[in-house]
Design a binder for these strands. Structure first.
Length: 783
DNA sequence: GATGAGCGGATTTTT
DNA sequence: TCCGCTCATC
């Protein structure tokens, strides 16, 4: 097979040969013509598998391109074909293409498919493809150049819990009361700043993002701590890369030249710093292709900025826009019902999903009395599906909040239906795994204070609180690492001699393993840790079910290490392993072929598809969530609607939606009306055979939900006979009385209108929000 | 340093 | 309700 030919140049040669009739070059000429013919055939065969807009997207190689890819519209296929086409046409070598995704799973899938496409065409891969997640691309880039920012190349990545641990230390040093200033809120604000691309200094000098003095001070100290530990948090991976490119023109120039073509998947989920980063890399050559679906933007609370995709054409006015609107996944009823729901949003591009597939079954809508009945309904239906020879692996149950899984699990278990729960307990966040990882981190980088504090007394080796206090004091007064401070504390005999020895022993333990690191493999280090720290030994001695489970997890962890070594071969360094661990998530390893029903939150369902989908808990205040209704931010509600859209469009054939009239929330029975999203599905797509008829009051609610009104329904002139909305004895409220509402908390009566059955009250809640209720119906109680 | 009472907080969680 | 974290206690 021909080597990759620089086709551009050759094309010119062909023209030259044509003009000069140079006979000597005829052979080369024929080779080129042959090759070109081969290429054309390959491209034609690629394109023949696509519909018109898809083809257009694959053929548009240069300049800014926005692909609006509706759910199930063959996005990955277009992306991979387009990469292949870039290479085939000689526009770029594989190494000149940067493709970023949000999940490892998506990256792996895209890399796999692209590679097999290219291999299938006999295009050898001389350089690795840069198809990876935003975060791991950045980590890779930073490994090369982070020394410019004053970090060591072997930086560690701090996850959320590591961040909290640093912040707790910072707060302690500043004498901040953790009740008034919870570490979590600092983490949130710092993350927000970082996602906006703002370092502490920048926060102080700009005006569009405000941060109070205390938080800014905490941010500063937090940064200092991370720098000293040579650690980056998740946001840093993006922010520091941005700063690197922004502040070092030569680095920027090099990467602009390297990545001549940039592809961004799930563009609707990019946050501001990702946007800045992409823009910085692409604004010169402008070969930037972004793919996304504004209707599937469900991560705004993590900083995703839907404006990035909505305003792409403003950033790149010459952009070509292609809409992929044909859905190949779901039956027509599902596609159209979902389209109707999402059409209620305003923050979107003008795009309508359609399909040529058959109408299929109608959506089954189920009303139940409570969450237990709802779960029983799901189980019953699963039984039916099974009898109709649907495999359990083809069935998924989605819910808005993790807490909802409990009742479902109970029912599934008692009916012996195997299930697997995705996302609730994360493997790599398990205590024993994290402990071992922290040992690894400390061995690699003794400046990693978080790791130090975690393992210094795990398993217990008699290093107690007061000793740790001394170490902490030492670190903050001398600005040294905890590992070093431990040495100082021991040397200066600042604690009793037993403790001094224990500190020294611990240091010695780490130091020896650090020495061994030079010759040992990652799996050897792992075994050494288990052995020398007596971690495994202690667990074995415990002999409790928990310790057994932990040992099993450790075994699984060992398998992961071995597999990693097999895959990466000589590149399987401890550092690379730790990086992989930090950037991986559980859902990445989701094995689709287990014969079990899958349970997960709607958020996690994005990107997946199942023949049979259950969406449960469609109730106002749950889905859409109470918080999206509480404020008056219509964007929050729109995001909830997108979540609904995402969930619905996961289903290929059967979609079951259900709601319960009452549900236990935080131990209290609550009555909630059906979700407005249910009502946004036109009647004709809903299964008339649903076992309970759609209650008439649903339609009456609909009229009352004006888009702005986010309060729970005023039951005004409805006289329900429905037992779920039992009437309370009417007792008149007076202005100034204190009341409590199960959702909004306590407040005082601000205004009273009418009396008796018709009395309406306005309540001013602690968060200064004013809400109006029908007194007899609202769940208010006097306090 | 392990254990239990007591308290507060409780959407969603790609990396 | 239920989980996790802190703090007091032995």
């Amino acid at each position: 097979m021909p080597e990759r030919i620089q086709l551009q140049k050759k094309k010119k040669n062909i023209r030259a040969i044509n003009e000069t009739n140079d006979f000597d070059n005829i052979v080369e000429y024929c080779t080129i013509i042959g090759y070109q013919f081969f290429i054309i055939m390959e491209i034609e065969s690629l394109l023949s598998e696509l519909n018109a807009p898809q083809r257009e997207a694959v053929k548009t190689l240069t300049g800014p391109l926005l692909i609006l890819a509706g759910a199930g519209s063959g996005k990955t296929r277009v992306l991979t074909f387009r990469v292949a086409n870039l290479v085939l046409q000689g526009e770029a070598t594989p190494g000149q293409i940067l493709a970023v995704t949000f999940t490892n799973k998506a990256a792996r899938e895209m890399a796999r498919r692209t590679e097999s496409l290219l291999m299938g065409m006999g295009i050898p891969l001389h350089e690795p493809l840069w198809i990876s997640t935003f975060h791991s691309s950045c980590a890779r880039l930073l490994r090369e150049d982070i020394h410019r920012l004053g970090y060591q190349p072997f930086f560690v990545i701090y996850d959320d819990s590591d961040q909290l641990s640093v912040l707790k230390h910072v707060c302690k040093n500043l004498n901040l009361n953790d009740k008034v200033y919870p570490a979590k809120s600092f983490r949130h604000h710092i993350s927000q700043a970082k996602m906006l691309g703002l370092s502490p200094d920048k926060v102080a000098t700009q005006s569009f993002f405000r941060m109070d003095e205390t938080t800014l001070e905490v941010y500063r100290l937090y940064e200092e701590e991370l720098r000293r530990a040579n650690a980056l948090d998740f946001d840093d991976l993006l922010l520091k890369t941005y700063e690197l490119l922004k502040n070092f023109p030569d680095v920027l120039k090099a990467y602009r030249e390297k990545f001549r073509f940039i592809l961004v998947d799930e563009y609707q989920d990019t946050n501001h710093v990702q946007y800045l980063l992409i823009k910085l890399l692409a604004e010169e050559h402008r070969n930037i292709c972004v793919v996304g679906d504004e209707d599937q933007s469900i991560y705004s609370w993590r900083g995703a900025d839907i404006k990035n995709i909505l305003d792409f054409e403003k950033d790149f006015p010459e952009a070509c826009v292609i809409k992929l609107e044909e859905n190949y996944r779901s039956s027509k009823n599902i596609v159209e019902a979902a389209s109707h729901v999402i059409s209620n949003n305003t923050q979107r591009k003008n795009k309508t999903l359609f399909t040529q597939s058959e109408a299929g079954s109608k959506i089954s809508l189920q009303a139940e009395n409570n969450e237990y009945d709802e779960a029983r309904f799901v189980v019953r239906k699963i039984g039916e599906l099974r009898r109709n020879s649907h495999s359990l692996s083809d069935i998924a149950i989605f819910y808005r909040t993790n807490a909802q899984s409990r009742v479902l699990e109970e029912q599934l278990r008692s009916n012996s239906i195997p299930y697997r729960l995705i996302g609730s307990v994360k493997f790599y966040e398990r205590k024993e795994i994290k402990d071992i990882i922290c040992y690894m981190r400390l061995i690699l980088n003794t400046n990693d204070d978080v790791a130090f504090y975690r393992v210094v007394n795990t398993p217990t080796r008699g290093i107690g609180k007061s000793t740790i206090e001394e170490v902490l004091k030492m670190t903050s007064t001398h600005k040294i690492s905890a590992f070093e401070a431990a040495g100082q504390v021991a040397m200066q005999r600042l604690v009793h001699s037993g403790a001094c020895n224990k500190l020294q022993n611990f240091r010695y333990l780490i130091e020896t393993m650090k020495d061994e690191l030079k010759s040992a493999s990652t799996s050897e280090i792992y075994l050494r840790i288990l052995d020398k720290t007596q971690y495994a030994q202690r667990l074995k001695e415990e002999k409790t079910p928990e310790s057994e489970a932990r040992l099993e997890n450790l075994e699984e962890f060992q398998n992961a290490i071995l597999q990693f070594e097999e895959e990466r071969e000589e590149e399987a360094t401890l550092q690379a392993f730790l990086e992989e661990m930090a950037l991986i998530s559980d859902t990445d390893n989701l094995n689709e072929n287990t014969a079990a029903v899958t349970l997960m939150t709607l958020h996690l369902s994005k990107g997946l598809e199942y023949n049979n989908v259950f969406i449960v808990g469609l109730e106002e205040g749950l889905f859409p969530s109470g918080r999206s209704l509480a404020g008056d931010d219509p964007n929050l509600l729109e995001e909830e609607r997108r979540i609904c859209y995402v969930g619905m469009t996961r289903a290929r054939h059967n979609l079951f939606m259900s709601y319960a009239k009452s549900r236990c929330v935080y131990g209290q029975e609550e009555y909630r009306p059906p979700s407005r999203f249910v009502d946004e599905i036109p009647e004709k797509y809903i299964n008339a055979n649903a076992s309970i008829k759609r209650p008439a009051f649903l339609d009456r609610y609909a009229e009352k939900y004006s888009k702005k009104e986010s309060v729970f329904p005023n039951y005004e002139d409805d006289n329900f006979t429905d037992e779920s909305f039992s009437q309370k004895p009417s007792d008149n409220y007076k202005r100034g009385e204190r009341v409590r509402h199960p959702i909004f908390g306590t407040g005082s009566i601000f205004q009273v209108e009418g009396s008796g059955e018709q009395q309406k009250v306005s309540v001013l809640f602690a968060d200064k929000s004013l809400k109006k209720f029908m007194a007899k119906a609202a769940r208010l109680e006097r306090v």
